[in-house]
């Protein structure tokens, strides 16, 4: 069974690129256009990983991240935070909110895929254990 990944971003171009990339690598992809929708989809589809843009309408990526970490049953979901803002303070903030990795835009698709794969393989272990 393929892993589920949720893309939460409001930039249609980036979403289109990521969606194509992940589907090509055999993941089941869901798309949210704002923070609220992201939380809704996490609830309904229980993804294994979320690609979370920071600058989103309604609820920011930080907020979504925080909400997710508040829920015990969502603790296993990996979060990769994506942001065009790459200052140290912002990276630190994202990580302190509970993101597993903070990726600065623009990113290398290869590196991103490698990180996603690494996270997902590592994350499955404690679940099976």
């Amino acid at each position: 069974m393929s892993k589920k990944i949720l893309i939460a971003d409001d930039e249609p171009s980036i979403v289109a690129a990521l969606e194509f990339l992940l589907q090509r690598n055999g993941y089941e992809v869901h798309i949210a256009r704002d923070g609220e929708e992201a939380l809704r989809l996490v609830e309904s589809h229980n993804p294994d990983l979320v690609l979370l843009d920071v600058m989103m309408p309604i609820k920011s990526g930080y907020e979504v991240c925080m909400r997710m970490r508040e829920r015990e049953d969502w603790r296993h979901i990996k979060i990769i935070m994506l942001s065009a803002k790459g200052r140290d303070a912002e990276v630190a903030k994202g990580l302190s909110m509970g993101a597993d990795i903070y990726v600065t835009k623009p990113f290398s698709t290869r590196e991103l895929m490698a990180k996603i794969q690494a996270l997902l393989s590592q994350g499955s272990e404690p679940e099976s254990a």
Binding site: E11, S13, I14, A16, L18, A84, P106, F107, S108
Partner: peptide
């Protein structure tokens, strides 16, 4: 600048 660059680079 980074936002459009991201799409362009990814694609």
């Amino acid at each position: 600048l980074r936002t459009p660059l991201t799409s362009i680079r990814a694609i």
